[in-house]
Design a protein around this nucleic acid. Structure first.
Lengths: 355, 355
DNA sequence: CGGCCCACATAAAACGTTTCAAGAGCACGC
DNA sequence: GCGTGCTCTTGAAACGTTTTATGTGGGCCG
């Protein structure tokens, strides 16, 4: 020690009332020794952890990582640290990761569940850890939730296409069991009903690109081609793009496409992609606000927050080209000659050859 | 307690020699009580932390998050947890985040530094925390490093284009101060020299898409158009795509493009993108192997590992169309009529209008 | 039968903080 | 002069584990 006292050091470092002179000495000593409080000991004694745990379905999905990044940014300003775990899109893994995270005794937890009925809720309740459920807000949660207005999202996407004259829509979804997907569909169906259209077709493509492309290709070669496609996740958007490219379907000439989530590549793609943008930054802010309030003892009734999305109109949607009745024939796209060298070649090398 | 003894519980839970019967009783009690070891107390007493801290320049860049995801997967199988922090592409933030991470007394640390001379090395050395430097392996590190064979990466990309008959190449880089960028350039220059070509032009576009597009557009409208472009980061790739689209330059008809990092959208884009793929999974595995060895007391000399990349050939590269001398005139692309509705319209709405 | 070793269980100390109650010093007012 | 209140400091207890050393009982060998 340079100066005095073991407990006074703690008082200085936790910002309690200490004479300015001693505080100064302690700080000098600390910095010269390169001393930093041991979080484990600190947390053990005080019972207060400056850690927030976050459990997401996957760290491969840019939507989730962008939320993680935004949350991390928020936490940094409040001097908290972040422990992340990925559930690997698997309920069993989710459960075991949740237990691992709980053993940190985090101050609070942010969860994006794998499925609507978040089984871990009972664990969290038993541990008394405050938590907020994010994005996939399905079952009846007894905790605060933050989500996006999925119905309006679907409604706006569909209305945009309908306004452009599209009548035959296709929904590309990951899995219709997820409530946010269901709600987006609901919005689309509402918009269609309002326009006097029948309910659009829906295809489920799963959570990875390979299966999405496979299923979309078989669907497209066996069904009448839609004039407008709404993809409800970012993988679905990629899958739709890839499959349409394989069939050399021009966008937006033959098919208009509305994607979900707004990423850099959508701006750079040719054509750039019209998409529903989720307010990632606002979601992160809101979720941390709620969680911090709960950590600080707020015991008001749970709140289910819903944030608005925005439709970013780019080049992948255009006025429907009517008067081409042949376009609807099954399998048509496969036989149609492609127009650009790039697309044509893509059919051969699209799966990627290593050099 | 259901059964006996406070210390025996610890023996059971840490897997030491205990009579089978008592072990059974303890486990039952633990699961019925929902008991889980408090990591803070455990770490405090044992001095062993089952935490690995990871410091990355940004969590917005999919290359970094994909590495984080892969590392997390590895750690999970070895029953370790991950604490991440983002340096926000800023050296000062990097330093403060590093200190925050060190207060966890992590078993080890994985660092992707912001700059080549990683100033935090001294902090880590002082704390005695084993660490591995990943990806941006610039200055003389006194720690293990894991990186990619950047020279060969550049060489292969350039050779691919040269083999296709391209003579005028353009390098699009984030910042040439980074050593991995420098090495990639070196490989490209080598390949050009071997083919008797002059050194290709280079343009620095920074770390975000907006600035990349801006700078590329001004460059493209004031210089002779190259026939082949090599983009050295994923943002550079996106920037190149977006700028070429604005000028309605066809890929690969007029310009061939080799990108960096291999993402789902590159497969789905039209045309799909030929790219250098970095072995993210292998990097994560190697970095954890090295770190774990150091944690376990391995004190052999530091090793600088270098992993091979692979060139994934897709549709964005094609044989050079010679015999079009006019193509080289400055600003040409702006006046040329675009061929597809999508690209044409993109010029008007490319920046995205909210609805 | 005694001594020894083995397998297992446990008491108690220790890890590095925070916190609480109590102490020290000082000024003030009666 | 003494009690009172105030500011600042500090000794010691406590947090929940792990670990070390010690204890206990039983089997085996001489």
């Amino acid at each position: 020690m340079a100066g005095v006292s073991p407990a006074t050091v703690s008082n200085v470092l936790t910002g309690r009332r200490v004479r300015a002179e001693s505080a100064q000495r302690v700080k000098e000593a600390a910095s010269s020794l390169g001393y930093a409080v041991d979080r484990a000991a600190s947390q053990l004694r005080s019972g207060r952890a400056r850690v927030v745990a976050m459990l997401v379905p996957s760290l491969e999905n840019p939507f989730f990582t962008s939320i993680v990044a935004a949350v991390e940014r928020r936490l940094r300003t409040d001097d908290h640290d972040l422990v992340v775990a990925s559930a690997a899109d698997d309920v069993a893994t989710e459960h075991s990761r949740l237990q691992a995270l709980l053993s940190w005794r985090p101050a609070g937890m942010i969860v994006i569940p794998c499925t609507d009925d978040f089984a871990g809720a009972s664990l969290l309740a038993a541990a008394g850890t405050p938590y907020v459920v994010l994005d996939r807000v399905g079952g009846a949660h007894s905790a605060d939730t933050v989500a996006v207005d999925n119905v309006t999202a679907g409604l706006e996407a569909a209305r945009h296409l309908i306004d452009l004259g599209h009548r035959r829509l296709l929904i590309v979804a990951s899995a219709r069991t997820l409530s946010n997907i269901k709600l987006r569909c609901k919005g689309i169906v509402e918009a269609c009903a309002a326009a006097g259209l029948e309910e659009p077709a829906l295809i489920e493509v799963g959570f990875d690109l390979e299966s999405a492309v496979d299923r979309l290709q078989t669907w497209l070669s066996t069904h009448e081609r839609p004039s407008g496609i709404i993809a409800l996740t970012n993988f679905a958007t990629l899958g739709a793009l890839a499959s349409l490219a394989r069939f050399s379907v021009s966008i937006p000439g033959e098919v208009s496409l509305v994607g979900f989530d707004d990423y850099a590549w959508m701006r750079a793609a040719a054509p750039s992609i019209t998409a529903i943008r989720q307010p990632v930054e606002a979601m992160a802010e809101l979720v941390w606000d709620r969680l911090r309030a709960r950590i600080d003892g707020d015991s008001s009734p749970v709140v289910q927050a819903m944030l608005p999305v925005s439709l970013v109109i780019r080049a992948s949607t255009a006025r429907c080209q009517t008067g081409d009745p042949a376009a609807g024939l099954p399998g048509q796209g496969l036989r149609r000659p492609s127009r650009t060298g790039g697309r044509q070649r893509e059919q051969g090398t699209g799966r990627g050859a290593k050099a």
